[in-house]
Structure formats: C-alpha cells, structure tokens
C-alpha cells in the first residue's frame, strides 16, 4: 500500500490543502481527490494537452506532474480562468466562434490559449498554431479554435 501525503497549494487563488496518494499525478489529485473535473484526461501521457494547467504560471500537462510537486506552489485550472462573474475573453471567444464540438479538449485549449495571450497578446496565426500544437482536438479541425484565439486577442486589446 502506498503512502498518503498532505499537500498545500494555491489553487485558483485560494490556499487549498488536500490529501493525495504519493503516486498521484497532479491530474489524479485535481480530478479524484479535489473534484476539479474540468481538467480532462485524454492520454495520461503528455501527448494531448487535455489536462493542461498553469503551474506557477507556466503551462504544464498535469498528467506529467506529480501531485507532490505542487506543494507550496500555485495551480490554475480551467475552473480558475474566468474573471469574477464574467467569462475570460478566450472562453467567450470559444462560445462565439463555435470553437468546441464535443468540448473535451476545450479546457486544455483554454488554459493553453490564456497562457499564450498572457505572454504574447497579439500572436500571429503561425504562433497560435505552433503554441497549440501540444493540444489535440479531434472534432474541429482546429479552424475555429485558431479563429477564437485570434478573436480573444483582439477583444483583449480593446479592453
């Protein structure tokens, strides 16, 4: 039997303590121990980006991070990217542009797109495609996702 550990982290802006198995990935812990099921599992292998979160502000695949590693750090999931009472511009753009079909890849794309726009507010199409190449979407062909990120970039400039 494996050991349980207590982890404390800033989760979507609030200090959160939880108990995890020492073998839990961050993805396991977020979904199964804390109940933040907005973080999706697509491959559990670092290949699809569905589990993307920000760890200390950096985009990571949470299936490739051990839960124990986030002790004392900060984690942002899709549940934490909306502004108070208002969707984040990238969330709104995904809705307006019909950039989701089944929606399972959407949380990962939203977190990745936010991370891009945080550092590069006016990315080119090429930059968006390159940045999002770590996120797989099987439904949309990516067209409307790219357009949505472009729209989000524009609407964030206006603000």
């Amino acid at each position: 039997m494996s050991k349980k550990i207590v982890i404390s982290t800033d989760l979507n802006g609030d200090i959160t303590e939880f108990i995890a198995d020492e073998r839990d990935s961050l993805l396991d812990a977020l979904r199964e121990r804390i109940g933040l099921t907005g973080v999706k599992e697509g491959c559990n292998n670092g290949n699809c980006g569905a589990c993307a979160v920000l760890l200390d502000g950096i985009l990571v695949n949470s299936c490739c991070v051990m839960a124990a590693e986030v002790d004392g750090g900060s984690v942002t999931t899709v549940e934490g990217i909306a502004l108070e009472n208002e969707l984040h511009p990238v969330q709104q753009a995904f809705l307006n542009e019909a950039a989701l079909q089944c929606g399972i890849c959407t949380p990962g794309f939203l977190v990745a797109a936010k991370a891009l726009l945080d550092t590069n507010p006016e990315p080119t199409e090429e930059e968006i495609r390159f940045w999002l190449a770590g996120n797989l979407c099987r439904c949309t062909g990516y067209d409307k996702i790219i357009t949505a990120v472009q729209e989000a970039s524009k609407s964030m400039q206006k603000k």
Binding site: R31, T37, V39, V78, F94, L100
Partner: peptide, 22 residues
Amino acid sequence: RPVRPDGVDKVTGRAKYGADIQ
C-alpha cells in the same frame, strides 16, 4: 449562429463527462 445551450458549462469545466462522475 447562436451560442450553444451547453456552451458555458463546457468552457468553464463544469460540464460532466462520463469520467467526471464521483
């Protein structure tokens, strides 16, 4: 081209997919 009814749930991570059941 209206916004889909399940859209907000799906961009906020609230929508419950099969594996999300607890």
